[in-house]
Design a protein around this nucleic acid. Structure first.
Lengths: 138, 138
DNA sequence: ATGGTTAGAACTATACTGGTTACAACCGGT
DNA sequence: ACCGGTTGTAACCAGTATAGTTCTAACCAT
């Protein structure tokens, strides 16, 4: 199966860097720490900027947090970079046959369960802030 | 982003059909209820068969449950059809720079959180059995 | 044997990911 | 006012997953 893209883990990596050593945070430096291409970093920073988490000074280099690290949860980051159509993690097959007992009922019943499962995951992500994550570095 | 494939919802649909109207369950009939191609159905039934949930009588048509519906959870189905490499829903970027404070620490710290989030979702899926889902049809 | 069925290979179109190159726009310092 | 380092994007590519199709072989009850 296709996993949730690494944009998410990279975004958390970026924010952790900006939160801990903001003075060094040029795109190239971040790319070196993440070990990828600077353009990938810029794209993700663009998403984080759009979400209001970071501020970027164009030209001169340097990215800084616009929100304190204890007010950014992993869920916030997840939602900023993993843009899913209508927010649903689980894909549902289209148009089950309405003339069939199962076909006409499964969608509502299963969708509710899937929504709850997704909510459980997101709730867990929402419990962890960037600040909490960073304290685990040593 | 890429959602979790519809194989999962289709698999639940198939099992619901087999559990409620087993006598009718040829591949074509199921395909009609799911509203897709019979080959798609056969592929997914193949996975469910491999996982030991259904039994198929080749040639004559008809699929039946090999386990009672109250002993099959949505998590079981999920794991049978959404085969993820090493079981991890979240993808992690490869080889952060070990010479960087953040790069060398983020992997372990973040991976733990992601594992917990995934576990929360799976735990929720594991609470619902096929039997429970079916009782919601009317 | 025949017809309905299951099993699966091979192929296509589409789309997302991660990555690259290239170029324009920006800005601080000399 | 230029220059070098930087950010912001567009365009493109290879690899891979999904969903679907067509086709063929194997199966089995009648």
């Amino acid at each position: 199966m296709k996993q949730i893209s690494s944009r998410f883990s990279i975004a958390v990596h970026i924010l952790s860097l900006v939160a801990t050593i903001p003075s060094e945070c040029t795109g190239d430096f971040i790319a070196g720490s993440v070990n990828t291409n600077p353009v990938i970093i810029r794209k993700i920073i663009g998403l984080l900027k759009k979400a209001g988490f970071v501020e970027v000074r164009a030209g001169v280099g340097g990215t800084s947090l616009r929100k304190p690290a204890d007010q950014i949860t992993l869920l916030d980051v997840y939602r900023a970079v993993e843009v899913i159509e209508n927010g649903e993690l689980f894909n549902f097959h289209n148009h089950p046959n309405p003339n069939c007992l199962v076909g006409s009922n499964i969608e509502a019943a299963l969708r509710a369960e899937l929504r709850d499962a997704q909510a459980a995951m997101e709730q867990r992500l929402g419990q962890v802030t960037l600040a909490q994550l960073i304290t685990k570095f040593k």
